[in-house]
Design a protein around this nucleic acid. Structure first.
Lengths: 220, 220
DNA sequence: GTCTATATCGGGATAGAC
DNA sequence: GTCTATCCCGATATAGAC
């Protein structure tokens, strides 16, 4: 693994653990057991590292958010139910966000400092909204009502997706990754429940089952 | 006005405008046209200022969140509709948050640095949740359905309330205070729409009317 | 209470040898 | 590519006069 990549990995890990502002360029160098001068040879300061990391996240997240829910590459078994597909779709997205979670702890701060990150977050917000809309369509199918403001529900979902990690950390500090992620998926799917009419009860049950299965699966 | 208060006012304004991390103790002193030494006489550094400001917000916000929706002191006219009362209730809360909005731009960051702020945000989250629950009860009244998960809706509302300012800034940068706040109120009230059955249409219309009235009122 | 002056410290950044 | 050494600077913090 090249030094440049090792720097990015280590920086991201430190940012996530210690909080972005608590990590200096020297801290990263020390963690890697290289000299500050060497680090500056690869990245001209913390700024360059931030931009590189954000660019990576953006590329990966754009890919995930743009993947159609019915993409055969995303799921092993195409016979899965819409709820199952939605669950997996949201899981991979939130997992990806979790691996760069420091970015979601102070987005405004970073957007203020770096114009590129500012534009990137705006773009990602739009993509998140589009992905939530696709998800709603997939889940509600033909039964989708022509509510005048399914719109505000979709907005609320995009907002929840964006700030879930911050919120959950605030309310349930110390919980472990799997719990945080799956709880988020469940919360997001719940947005569709009120619109499901007679299927609402079975929908809840399917979600509950998935939630427990997923938690059990990751604990092994 | 005492110097100590002037320091807090100016610090809060600067934090909101420039971003918390972009403001040093000297910046605050310069803005006030006092010496750094003088500032340190009143507050032992930025930390003390942060704690004092957060304590103030917390006190004020706890009061607002705990005010019953039917409190006669909150509203001039007790004949107002539930929607109207809810609208005003949310407006004063979000307005208060807006006046300390820097705190909501990087909550995780501040919570990481100050244990008091950490505990305070946790407490406020619980109060927000309780306030949202009261609001739902007020709005849905006897027609409130015994949905198994009105719970997840209330959680979503508390999350939205907490992160609305960050979200709206991310999606609609540069918008002015009134628009941001009223859009947030509208978004929050919309959570109740799916549960309103036959009254849904008139509920939407009442909200729309209020939204326009409020915007018009503040533009004069 | 308020000022000026100064001390201290840490992080960002570069030069030049290896 | 990597290291050591060093510089620069801004922010924090204190001392002591007024």
């Amino acid at each position: 693994m090249k030094t440049a990549d090792r720097i990015l990995e280590t920086a991201c890990a430190l940012f996530n653990e210690e909080g972005e502002h608590n990590v200096s360029a020297s801290d990263i160098a020390i963690a890697l057991d290289i000299s500050p001068g060497n680090l500056y040879y690869h990245f001209k300061g913390k700024d360059a590292i931030h931009l590189a990391l954000f660019t990576r996240l953006q590329r990966e997240l754009v890919g995930l958010l743009s993947t159609p829910l019915t993409d055969p590459n995303l799921f092993s078994d195409n016979e899965d139910s819409p709820v199952m597909r939605s669950w997996l779709f949201l899981t991979v997205i939130i997992e990806k966000m979790y691996s760069y979670r420091y970015l979601y702890e102070s987005p405004s701060d970073l957007m203020h400092r770096y114009p590129e990150i500012d534009r990137g977050f705006q773009r990602l917000s739009r993509l998140k909204r589009a992905a939530c809309e696709a998800l709603v369509n997939e889940l509600l199918g033909e039964t989708r009502p022509s509510y005048p403001r399914l719109d505000s529900t979709i907005n609320a979902m995009a907002l929840t997706l964006t700030f879930w990690l911050s919120w959950d950390r605030m309310v349930n500090p110390g919980d472990k990754q799997d719990v945080i992620i799956h709880r988020g998926v469940l919360q997001l799917l719940s947005f569709c429940a009120p619109y499901m009419g007679s299927e609402q009860q079975s929908f809840y049950e399917e979600c509950e089952v998935l939630y427990r299965e997923m938690l059990a699966a990751t604990n092994t």
